[in-house]
């Protein structure tokens, strides 16, 4: 279901109270004119699953953190913010998880310049 960025924390709290206690993955997809952040949740006892989708504009990339509700969001948010250049507000800026580089754009964005440097190395 599609929600707005402001409703995220409240919606996660509601769903956790109604049984969705297992956060499967947090990831994002880069459609060139907007980004979509995805939150996958699952209810183990009643066997249902739900996906929350948030649309973000490329000039205004930030999301609130949900680490108080689900502890597993810790590393998922770090990986998403590193790969897609999305800032996570509400926690201290953590160090880089997967790469040790200092480029300007996240690797999984469509505008990332790659593939040419393999000729020089």
């Amino acid at each position: 279901m599609k929600i707005k960025r402001e409703e995220l924390a409240q919606k996660i709290g509601e769903m956790k109270a109604s049984g969705y206690s297992y956060l499967v993955k947090i990831t994002a997809v880069d459609y060139v004119d907007h980004l979509t952040a995805l939150y996958f949740l699952r209810d183990i006892d009643k066997n249902r699953e739900e996906t929350l989708e948030i649309d973000l504009a490329p000039t205004d990339l930030w999301l609130p953190t949900i680490i108080k509700a689900h502890t597993s969001a810790d590393w998922y948010e770090r990986e998403m913010s590193e790969m897609f250049d999305i800032k996570i507000k509400g926690r201290k800026a953590p160090r880089l998880l997967l790469e040790r580089w200092d480029g300007t754009e996240g690797p999984l964005r469509k505008g990332f310049a790659w593939g040419e440097d393999y000729k020089s190395m």
Partner: peptide
Amino acid sequence: EEFKIAKKEMDR
């Protein structure tokens, strides 16, 4: 000759 200066700062 392979230790060339590459594009990114990290490589350098």
